[in-house]
Design a protein around this nucleic acid. Structure first.
Lengths: 229, 229
DNA sequence: GCCTGTTAGTGTAAGTATTACACTAAGCTG
DNA sequence: CAGCTTAGTGTAATACTTACACTAACAGGC
């Protein structure tokens, strides 16, 4: 095969599935398309990859341009390459996903004035392209990942109660956890530092506050420690 | 952004990491490049994606063209998109991986007369591009996957002994397993059918032969059964 | 100030899974 | 028939998982 590419090339895009955690609801960030195809329909934020940027950079750039959401840690999900997934022409899309604290990422007016909004994960509108499929894949991956990777650092306030942390897991895993077993397990990991403070402004017994021990987390992660919940 | 793509496009390739199981050795299939860049160096089989074929089809096509190896079940690994990974121009590569029985896939003269060969996994030559990185990623993924997905169907003869199956796991996981615990676990899954036959032509006590119960396997897989070893 | 509502915080027992470990049985070979 | 090689088997100790219910603390309303 000669170097010069004789065939028409596939276009390359990135799409972002950004999950946002509300108090007790898992949401996903969507944009309303203003052009054909699927004009007026909701879709995942994303767009074409420039020739001088990495895939991850492209994903972050598109996310900011279309939704104003910044500083999220995107992880590669899967590459979707069916021939007919875009009605215009052949488009292969590398999908990324992330999980963020929703309150830190309220949608601003996006720079190109497209409409962006958070939707509850089990109440999303019908999406254009194969984005329903991408979203489902990301949701499944998120649930899988949470089982062997600890969560929280970026998803909770600096000081938080065990109840908040448990709620976070319950929201993502979409099932209830036993309070005592959860506490036993999570404290047993030794990643939380118990503080000499309790929460304030609650109309009942105040819960103790904890903080993540980030140094310990990094040490254990490097050793391949298993955080399964 | 208008429909017509104003920027130079990245080229899209696929690369294949095909692991081959020998009796007790894990190998990987490489080709020797006959063109620049990296002419004469070994590399993973792969090539450009045509505009009218899926990524998986492209991966299988390139694999056959470059190595003659056919009928392998490729699974998507990761998409590598660093800007400088190909010295010629921007090339994004979707990597696939597979695990096959080596004896079924001896390398034939490839159709385009390139040299292809199997290399022991811990004795590979230095590879061109970022293929060392792709290979390492695939190897890690393979070990991870084996832990929660049963192996075997395509990797052993139809009738096999528990010793053979255990050896297969040991080769991939690269550690010894306890014979009694292994048997307990694997038989407890109920995926093996004990036959009324023993192996022949061995210079010691002959071991019982087993066969995979494929129906049962498919049933359990659908239910999300966990096959962890 | 006391009653009520609400969440915090705690331990144990039963069951299940994991690990470590060593001998006898069978069949071939010389 | 002695010796080599691998097959085949069970148990005890330990760790992990699950299920489960009561008292403690605090705020708010009366």
């Amino acid at each position: 095969m000669s170097y010069k590419y004789e065939y028409p090339r596939a276009a390359l895009t990135v799409d972002c599935v950004v999950f946002g955690l509300d108090e007790d609801d898992l949401k996903v960030l969507l944009i309303r398309r203003d052009m054909e195809p699927f004009a007026g329909r909701w879709a995942l934020p994303g767009g074409f990859v420039h020739v001088d940027e990495t895939l991850e950079t492209a994903a972050m750039r598109e996310l900011v341009e279309e939704t104003g959401v910044q500083n999220v840690y995107l992880e590669q999900l899967y590459t979707f390459g069916d021939v007919e997934r875009d009605p215009r022409e052949r488009v292969v899309s590398v999908a990324y996903y992330a999980l963020v604290k929703l309150s830190d990422h309220r949608v601003q007016a996006a720079t190109d004035a497209r409409e962006a909004a958070w939707f509850s994960i089990d109440d999303t509108p019908s999406l254009g392209f194969d984005h329903q499929n991408i979203l489902a894949t990301a949701h499944e991956r998120l649930r899988g990942k949470v089982r062997y990777q600890p969560l929280g650092f970026e998803l909770l306030p600096e000081k938080f109660t065990l109840r908040q942390l448990q709620q976070l897991y319950e929201t993502i895993l979409d099932r209830m956890l036993d309070k005592r077993n959860f506490r036993k397990k999570i404290l047993g990991m030794g990643l939380l530092k118990e503080l000499d403070e309790v929460e304030t402004e609650v109309a009942h017994r105040a819960a103790r506050l904890y903080r993540f021990d980030k140094r310990k987390y990094e040490r254990l992660t490097k050793q391949g420690f298993n955080f399964e919940i």
